[in-house]
Design a protein around this nucleic acid. Structure first.
Lengths: 225, 225
DNA sequence: TCGTTTCATATTGTTGACAATCTTGCAATC
DNA sequence: GATTGCAAGATTGTCAACAATATGAAACGA
């Protein structure tokens, strides 16, 4: 008769992941167990399981006896994430060029269309959500579970990185570059598609300020932690 | 006064990972909580956290109210893992060709030497341990944390795959192929190194029987689970 | 003999209470 | 006024007991 079991550990992980990916959870924010427990209507034990998973995934940093905090990626980590994205997304795109179907293309184009709308209406939260979602949709469509899981991880980390190091006001993923990539995939032009993707990722990374030492004056405590 | 705290969640995960990677934990084996709790001298709560992490990593499958079992990769998953390995390890090798140091090379060569010894002495457990360790050492030396973490995951899954689908009696990673790869890296010959790595992975994969339907007669129950 | 039911046991899943640790606000001191 | 010390509260970490579920064996009936 145990019905009120609430969301599973993995579902909680997924929800926290989404909040991070959509930048509604900022780096450094503390995730208090009881707080999460009441939000998800589950016991603290399950929350602790979810936090252990999130720590392993690098999205949350647990300081013993202090609590769990949304991770603040270092400059090195940031560079690393984009380095890996270049490889992984290139692989995704190559695979798509080989095996993409009509329905896949339709879904991709619909997604880009949504991005366009969100962009023109300037709904920040939607823009963030959809631009991350595009890269994830590519990975999903490519049909490799492992690649998809990896991209999920990379996207969330990219969100954290952008939250910390973004330099410009513009948002990173413009729908135009996404559209071009889809077009190249549609034409089965792997060379062009990978080139566009590489360029796109460079573009995103270039809007980050990864050269400077992070601002410490504001945030001394967390920086030293 | 809390001294007897025992290994942390992540350390337990690491130990289970190692047991899987070294094939001392076979696919399908049940991991009972109390059993693990006594082995690691920790409470069940911490074991459950570790199991949640391992489930997320795909090394363990949790069936509600039934328990946690070491995962049995499907044929599709197996293909997927090797597909991703081709991309990731190519990336690792390319990076190494650019940035390898003398000390790095020394460590790699020492590792291959150990593999040779284990092989000549025919110590199965050592052979398995070291041949997985070689690929991991490559990733570690490449200097990308994310790549290393990903490879850790891939190696463990490869062990499970090999345990289920290995066809031949020989062991998969011969030290000779490893040695050739190290030589190509030492020569900064990225083309050759990536070619050798690709060939090596194909070789390993070719010793698996991924075309046949898995043998069910022996193991019907777990197969249907 | 085979299949079904029942019951004891084992295992998982949950909960609440407690101890250890950290944070915060306040007062005392220099 | 700034710093230190202390105490109250909040938070994490741990544990053991309990409930829910599955397993396996014995009893029963066809």
């Amino acid at each position: 008769m145990a019905e009120q079991s609430g969301p599973s550990t993995q579902q909680i992980v997924e929800k926290v992941w989404l909040s991070i990916a959509e930048r509604r959870l900022r780096p450094g924010v503390q995730l208090k167990e009881e707080q999460l427990a009441t939000i998800f209507s589950v016991s603290r034990a399950r929350i602790r399981q979810a936090l252990a998973v999130l720590e392993r995934d690098g999205l949350v940093t647990i300081i013993p006896n202090r609590g769990a905090f949304v991770s603040k990626p270092s400059v090195d980590e940031a560079r690393d994430v984009f380095f890996v994205r270049r490889t992984v997304e290139r692989c995704v795109v190559e695979r798509l060029c080989k095996s993409v179907s009509k329905t896949d293309l339709k879904r991709l184009r619909e997604h880009v269309a949504k991005e366009r709308i969100a962009n023109s209406q300037d709904v920040t939260s939607e823009i963030i959500k959809l631009s991350g979602g595009f890269h994830l949709l590519l990975a999903e469509t490519a049909g490799s579970d492992f690649l998809f899981t990896t991209m999920r991880d990379l996207i969330a980390r990219s969100s954290l990185i952008t939250a910390v190091y973004r330099n410009t006001n513009r948002f990173n993923c413009g729908p135009d570059e996404h559209a071009e990539i889809v077009d190249a995939i549609a034409a089965n032009d792997a060379d062009k598609a990978t080139r566009l993707m590489a360029h796109h990722l460079e573009h995103v990374e270039s809007e980050l300020d990864l050269t400077e030492i992070r601002d410490l004056s504001h945030d001394l405590r967390a920086a030293l932690a």
